[in-house]
């Protein structure tokens, strides 16, 4: 099976460089999701970077807008827009808003997001519309684990199984951390598997850094009939930069320009191929 560790490494590098240039932003979960994004954009999604508005493309709805850096880095790396443009992140007039804003015209952005708890409802609406239109494209939605504390998410979870939207696949970035600390201390989420199952979803727990496991999980989601699927992707916040891994203080912080070199060295050491 072909894997995309090199692409994930490149995405992480672009995340760090763009965040250091911006001087602010969300490093931890952006790094943590790089493997999920590499697998999605290089293997799973039907899309065309040269024709971003291609009608039949699969949809990726990013509900956690704060991980915009991983989305932007992935899109630029895939060829949606010049990598150079990543340097404009969070700057006045940029298409790369701090949280994705659709009306700034960056290709590949399906929804404005930042305020949590909304993306899954929108993804569900897309999946329902596709069922009505007999479209075979799929909708993916990236959620944070802390985001599951928003009640509106559970409205969408309930409705998705009611409508049997098997063309919908959610991915929860289960890094176990949120701004104020570990999720289980801030507001207990476990057992997430049981909770999603009891709401009628097909639940797959997966290592969010294991490309083969992720691809198998996405493939099995595609085969599932009559139920939406959620991947509970166990990830490490800050993955790739050892000194900040699993440190929730890095949820909403960017490396300084001085820190960047050290971080890139750490990233180099964590570079792995298979």
């Amino acid at each position: 099976m072909k894997t995309f560790y090199e692409q994930a490494w490149q995405i992480r590098k672009l995340i760090l460089e763009s965040l250091a240039e911006a001087g602010s932003g969300h490093t931890g979960s952006s790094l943590g999701l790089a493997d999920v994004f590499a697998v999605l954009y290089h293997q799973v999604l039907h899309h065309n970077p040269l024709n971003p508005d291609w009608e039949e493309r699969d949809r990726l709805v990013l509900s956690i807008g704060h991980v915009a850096p991983v989305l932007y880095a992935t899109l630029a790396h895939a060829g949606y827009f010049p990598v150079e443009e990543l340097k404009t992140l969070r700057k006045l007039g940029s298409r790369l808003q701090g949280h994705p804003g659709r009306d700034f015209g960056l290709p590949g952005i399906e929804l404005s997001a930042g305020s949590l708890g909304q993306g899954l409802s929108v993804a569900l609406g897309m999946a329902m519309a596709d069922k009505m239109d007999n479209k075979h494209r799929r909708t993916y939605c990236i959620l944070g684990d802390g985001e599951l504390q928003e009640g509106s998410v559970w409205e969408a979870i309930m409705a998705a199984s009611h409508h049997q939207t098997d063309n919908l696949c959610a991915v929860v970035d289960r890094n176990g951390l949120q701004i104020d600390g570990p999720t289980e201390q801030v507001m207990k989420l476990e057992s997430l598997e049981d909770r999603w199952k009891s709401f009628g979803w097909n639940v797959i727990s997966v290592d969010g850094h294991d490309h083969a496991a992720l691809m198998n999980a996405f493939e099995s989601a595609q085969k599932m009939k009559g139920k939406p699927t959620v991947l509970l992707a166990k990830t490490i916040m800050g993955k790739g930069v050892k000194s900040i891994e699993n440190d929730y203080h890095w949820h909403g912080k960017a490396p300084s320009k001085e820190q960047l070199e050290g971080f890139l060295n750490e990233l180099n050491k964590s570079r792995y191929y298979d």
Binding site: M126, M132, E155, A156
Partner: peptide, 24 residues
């Protein structure tokens, strides 16, 4: 073409936003 969303208005607004996908 009619969708009962239950007593879940936040979800209804999100679904409606998503449903615009194919020009609905």
């Amino acid at each position: 073409r009619f969708f009962q969303t239950g007593i879940a208005e936040a979800n209804m607004m999100g679904i409606a936003a998503g449903m615009t996908i194919g020009g609905m």
